[in-house]
């Protein structure tokens, strides 16, 4: 049995009166590729963002490698170094070049020397086909290139898990493929990943487990083939039929 990397215990999140997550108990094991789908407003992004405390849970616990991240004394910054995150809108740093963007955190946090961080960054850029963009500013990159840089920015921290929050939703359709390709390679390299996405064929191809989040709970989860071919939950059936009809 693989080691449990992230565990949520009765995880709850409210925004004011809006009860978004209603007690989620879940585990993500090392090496798993968990894809999270669900209708908009279901709480799937909030769930993902609670895993590295981008959103502060209003109840329950998030346990990462045995450390309760919601405990008051925990050094959340140190824990986040091991949890990479990729955002829908890339959030690259417009005042820094690609290389500076990728080396900022590892060097500032004294995890790598400047030389090592740069060497690693260049190796990662080469892997995702962006080596020639190392000294460009983000405004010179296309959306797909930006998101690939955002992925390798997180990877240069050498995280143990990668969280993807709708990584292709803000992209032009012709650029979705290049980002999914990078993610697929990453999955094959053994990285543990949690991905919120609307890319159903990607989910079926790459995921080890697919979750359906609806109204703040995980309504159903299964292996990709069972999940898509034999859904049980009526809301999931409805959701999948709508998505497939598009």
């Amino acid at each position: 049995m693989s080691e449990v990397l992230i565990k949520t215990v009765n995880l709850e999140k409210s925004f004011g009166d809006l009860h978004v997550l209603k007690g989620i108990n879940e585990e993500i094991k090392k090496g798993e590729i968990v894809v999270i789908i669900g209708p908009s407003g279901s709480g799937k992004s909030t769930f993902l963002r609670c895993l590295n405390l981008m959103e502060q849970p209003t109840g329950g616990q998030v346990i990462f490698k045995g450390t309760d991240l919601t405990a008051p004394k925990v050094d959340i910054n140190a824990q986040r170094q091991k949890m990479g995150m990729v955002f829908q809108h890339f959030n690259l740093f417009p005042h820094l070049t690609v290389l500076q963007t990728m080396t900022l955190a590892p060097v500032q946090l004294k995890l790598k020397s400047k030389e090592d961080a740069e060497a690693d960054a260049l190796a990662l850029l080469e892997k995702v086909g962006l080596l020639e963009k190392a000294n460009e500013y983000p405004n010179m990159l296309s959306g797909g290139q930006k998101q690939r840089v955002a992925i390798v920015r997180a990877l240069n921290m050498e995280p143990e898990v990668m969280l993807f929050d709708e990584p292709t939703s803000a992209l032009d359709p012709e650029m979705v493929g290049e980002v999914l390709e990078v993610m697929q390679d990453l999955a094959q390299s053994g990285m543990t990943m949690a991905i919120v996405t609307h890319e159903m064929s990607f989910a079926r191809r790459v995921a080890t487990r697919v979750m359906f989040v609806d109204e703040g709970v995980i309504a159903e989860q299964n292996t990709p083939d069972e999940f898509f071919d034999n859904p049980q939950n009526p809301r999931l059936k409805e959701f999948l039929s709508k998505v497939k009809n598009v």
Binding site: N77, M85, F87, N91, L109
Partner: peptide
Amino acid sequence: DKGQTEAGLSLGLSGGQTMRLI
């Protein structure tokens, strides 16, 4: 943009470092 702060924090930078560097 708030996303800039989130990106900094997600990399493990502290609030102060994110403010100062990003």
